[in-house]
Amino acid sequence: MSYIAATVLHAIRSDRRHGFQIMEAAGLASGTVYPALRRLEKAGLIRSRWERETVAHSEQRPARRYYQLTREGEAALATAEERFRFPELSAVGRSVAS
């Protein structure tokens, strides 16, 4: 597995659940993170779901698209962790995570 893919999986498991949070926490550019999310979702390593509009409206913000690891994603990340040592994730992303 690529280091980028593993870092994105690692960020999602660390409770960074939408694109901006992952980007901020992992220190990767938007042009890297979003395509990686598409590819990981296509490969079945993550899945996405939209936040309920009612929740978003009640908090006066747009609805977010959340990502989470699938069982295959967890397994792939466990394999990747044997090869890579991930840098500390920035606290910025987590502070705004729901």
Binding site: H18, G19, F20, Q21, R61, P62
Partner: peptide
């Protein structure tokens, strides 16, 4: 439409940060 919605929400978060 979904793609646009996601990016606009992400930009909203970016601006608020």
């Amino acid at each position: 439409a979904d793609w646009r919605r996601e990016w606009e929400a992400e930009v909203w978060w970016w601006i608020n940060s």
